[in-house]
Amino acid sequence: MAGTLIYAEVQKGEIKKGSFEVTSKAKELGGDVAVCLIGKGVEGLASQLAKYGADKVYVVDGPEYENYVTEAYVQAFKQVADTVSPAVILASATAQGKDLVPAVAARLGVGAISDCVDLKKEGDKVVAKRPVYAGKAYAMVEAVADPQVIAVRPNSFAVKEVAGAGAVEKAAVSLDASKIKAVVKSIEVAQTDEPDQTEAEIIVSGGRGMKGPENFKMLEDLAKLFGPTATTGASRAAVDAGWREHSYQVGQTGKTVSPNLYIACGISGAIQHLAGMGTSKVIVAINKDAEAPIFQKADYGVVDDLFNVVPALISEIQKVKG
């Protein structure tokens, strides 16, 4: 096959882990692995991609790429794709990836496969496994023509370092400014180091049993103990009550997540919520209602009042950590 082209995403001056994950996976699938890295002042990051399997990194670097604007990034990526003519295009299905991928596919006149959790090669085709109905089922999907454009959910693949250094090349790209119509007026990003729920390895989540917004502080405290890959989440009940922003919501009308550890506090486990977090590797449920459906999915259940359990858990973990 003619190889893979990857879109590498930069946030806060660093390449996203999901971009390394798809690079490692592309190497494993076989064929040449090219990466397109777009941004302002990103050239110095290119060599990192070689470590995870990139044979060649095309760098599109310039002040016009400081803020992500769909059209500018689509134009730049398409020009690199035209040069590479890959059989497969991969990107991490981050917030930005989800915006870019379908636009790129449509510009190339092909389809796209969103938010995949596994890829396997069958002949010239990559068959992608993706959750549908928020994880209530999986679809095995393949593209009818090349390039096969696929977005991969973060945390789906391990990053693997490989020997050998990839070449870095500045890509010659010219933008048609007349087509770039949207203008970013301002960006407001919360000053937090917490990862997005879809990318977090550990999520401490709260539901109706949290009783009010002020009590989420203890979930934040617990999450912090797990380090920088941990964050907090919420059930729809907690979000609809106005206790948490919608960006925290896990479930069918929120985010679908699959962290290594999901701790559900005061969450009964409605079908929509279970769909959204059912693929978590380890699930812990803390709820005083022994009949709560969440316990049917939990690897470890604590049937007790979360207002006693969570503070005790915080101090026990502090002890373990010394």
Binding site: V141, A143, Y300
Partner: peptide
């Protein structure tokens, strides 16, 4: 016509209720 095709649908493996502490 479509550019991607669903070959098969499956259900996620059933999760067993685990251990109550």
């Amino acid at each position: 016509g479509p550019k991607t095709v669903v070959k098969e649908m499956t259900l996620p493996p059933a999760r067993q209720a685990g251990k109550v502490i």
